[in-house]
């Protein structure tokens, strides 16, 4: 599957690394307090990932919950071969994918049509808060496959191989989805 990159994109900046193995050990032994420590470390990253991948606050909150509950249950099987953050990200991605599969079996009331023009996409791209908002919103309106890939690769910095591995698709599919995401975003963000 994916080769772990040297720089773990899932590690929160500025957090001392040496305390984490201890937290993991203690949590694996059953300490809820230690697990809360891990939770606090990673909740914002996992939430960001889930929020962007699901495009919805409610769903993101559910996914965060499900991710950490499952992480707790499987903690004694975490071997430490990949970083803990990456491990959590993988669980989160799986939860999101399950949710997307579940949703796709139920007819949506308002079908998402990616050819509709985006009412927010007026200003050209500049590095300011307004443009960031526009980009976030545009990303949230991407179709599932394209959005998943864009969020993992372009936002969170996973390589093509890692992204493909986490999503369970071929690398070629991943790249095609990325092209699609960028084309759709480009169209949407232009006047």
């Amino acid at each position: 599957m994916a080769a772990v990159t040297v720089e773990d994109p899932a590690l929160p900046a500025g957090v001392p690394e040496d305390s984490e193995p201890r937290l993991i050990r203690e949590a694996a032994d059953g300490s809820v307090r230690a697990f809360e420590g891990l939770y606090r470390r990673y909740e914002r990253r996992i939430y960001a990932l889930c929020l962007r991948m699901t495009g919805s606050r409610d769903r993101a909150e559910d996914c965060v919950q499900e991710t950490f509950v499952q992480a707790w249950q499987k903690l004694d099987k975490f071997e430490g071969r990949s970083g803990f953050g990456t491990w959590l990200h993988r669980i989160a991605v799986n939860k999101v994918l399950s949710l997307q599969r579940y949703d796709s079996r139920r007819p949506r009331l308002a079908p998402v049509d990616d050819t509709l023009s985006d009412p927010y996409g007026a200003a050209p791209l500049t590095a300011d808060a307004g443009a960031q908002m526009d980009l976030e919103q545009a990303v949230s309106r991407l179709p599932d496959g394209a959005r998943n890939v864009f969020v993992l690769h372009a936002v969170h910095g996973y390589s093509h191989e890692e992204t493909a591995g986490m999503l369970g698709v071929a690398v070629g599919t991943c790249k095609a989805q990325l092209h699609r995401a960028r084309r759709l975003l480009g169209e949407r963000l232009d006047a």
Binding site: M1, D76, K77, E79, G168, V169, A170, T173
Partner: peptide, 15 residues
Amino acid sequence: SQYQPGTTLRFTEGE
């Protein structure tokens, strides 16, 4: 896990 028996293999081919 190095503490418990059990071997898994999970991967995807194609789509």
